[in-house]
């Protein structure tokens, strides 16, 4: 077990190293990505551009630059942006993390609760109209681009129906720290939560339903039913419990990915200054230090989630282990 964990850890480091090197190489292979002139400012004199190039170490061999960037990011922590001069990357990312965490955690609570409800209800009423309706809705939820849903939500709640009783309480877009006002924090996040969760409610509901129905076919459930347990008890106690394992594994992965900044478009559409939006903005202006930091940050969570999931898999099913 320990060996498996250690090897997974080693793999994690390798993957992150690989990603950072790849990101670095791609950046420098992109024409127009050279930040010197952009840092120097519009219409800067050639002397100034050269001085900036030297000052930022952009005239050094690429591996030296890579080393310097890693050192600044992990050891000295004073890595600064190439685009917004003077902006320190590490504290910026740290400040953005709670926004993303608020968004993802709230949405996760919603999607787990509603997803479970959808899945169980649909499985219980399998083949009848509540099942069909719920599955139809879930399918719809999965089929819509999330930024489009967000835009439609904004159109309705912020403008078209903002002055009606239904949505007059909706605050302007943006994030309010929990410490500042828990109520305003929650109000500002209601629609981002719903938008992000909508997709996952659909996904998890469908998955849970399939899982429950599958476990119904298993021998031990048949035994339980033969023993005369009530249908509800079988559903909730046995079928759901075993069907929820893959859902929980899935949840681990999705949560990791989203906390790492994968909710980019949700954050962009709702104007939340989280990790995802930072990544998005950095990408739009090819701000290498910010891209690098957010990529490593995201990949850390992705790889971590993958590793946890893999370990869980090995625990559950020894067949995955190599003989």
């Amino acid at each position: 077990m320990l060996a498996a964990m250690l090897s997974r850890l080693a793999r994690m480091v390798v993957v992150m190293l690989g990603i950072s090197i790849l990101t670095f190489l791609i950046f420098f292979a992109t024409p127009g990505a050279d930040p010197a002139a952009r840092i120097a400012g519009r219409n800067a004199a050639p002397e100034t551009v050269a001085a900036v190039r030297h000052d930022f170490g952009l005239d050094q061999p690429i591996w030296v630059q890579y080393g310097a960037m890693m050192r600044k990011m992990f050891i000295t922590g004073d890595l600064t942006s190439f685009v917004n001069r003077g902006e320190k990357i590490v504290p910026t990312l740290r400040a953005a993390a709670p926004v993303t965490l608020s968004l993802v955690a709230g949405a996760a609570v919603l999607w787990m609760a509603l997803g479970a409800l959808t899945g169980i209800l649909a499985a219980a009423t399998r083949g009848r109209w509540p099942d069909k309706m719920l599955m139809g809705l879930s399918m719809m939820a999965v089929a819509m681009p999330v930024f489009w849903v967000g835009e439609m939500v904004n159109l309705i709640t912020q403008s078209r129906l903002h002055n009606t009783w239904a949505f007059s309480w909706v605050p302007p877009l943006g994030y309010v720290p929990f410490t500042e006002s828990p109520l305003r924090w929650a109000l500002a996040l209601v629609f981002p939560w719903l938008t992000l969760a909508f997709l996952y409610i659909g996904l998890y509901g469908r998955m849970l339903r399939t899982g429950i129905i599958e476990t119904y076919q298993e021998d031990y459930i048949r035994t339980a039913r033969a023993k005369g347990l009530t249908a509800r008890r079988v559903l909730l106690k046995h079928a759901t419990r075993s069907a929820i394992i893959p859902v929980v594994i899935m949840f681990g992965m999705d949560f990791g990915v989203l906390v790492g900044g994968a909710a980019v478009l949700t954050e962009v559409v709702f104007g939340l200054n989280g990790v995802g939006r930072l990544t998005y903005q950095a990408l739009k202006v090819l701000d290498l230090p910010m891209i690098m930091a957010s990529v490593l940050y995201a990949s850390f969570f992705v790889v971590l989630a993958n590793a946890i999931v893999d370990l869980l898999c090995i625990l559950i099913d020894p067949r995955m282990r190599r003989k």
């Binding site: 999965v142 681009p145 999330v146 930024f147 992000l196 997709l199 996904l203 998890y204 998955m207 899935m250 999705d254 990915v257 989203l258 994968a262 909710a263 980019v264 478009l265 949700t266 995802g276």
Partner: peptide
């Protein structure tokens, strides 16, 4: 965002 649309 691509992951946002992932289908478990």
């Amino acid at each position: 965002s691509l992951y946002e649309s992932e289908d478990p």
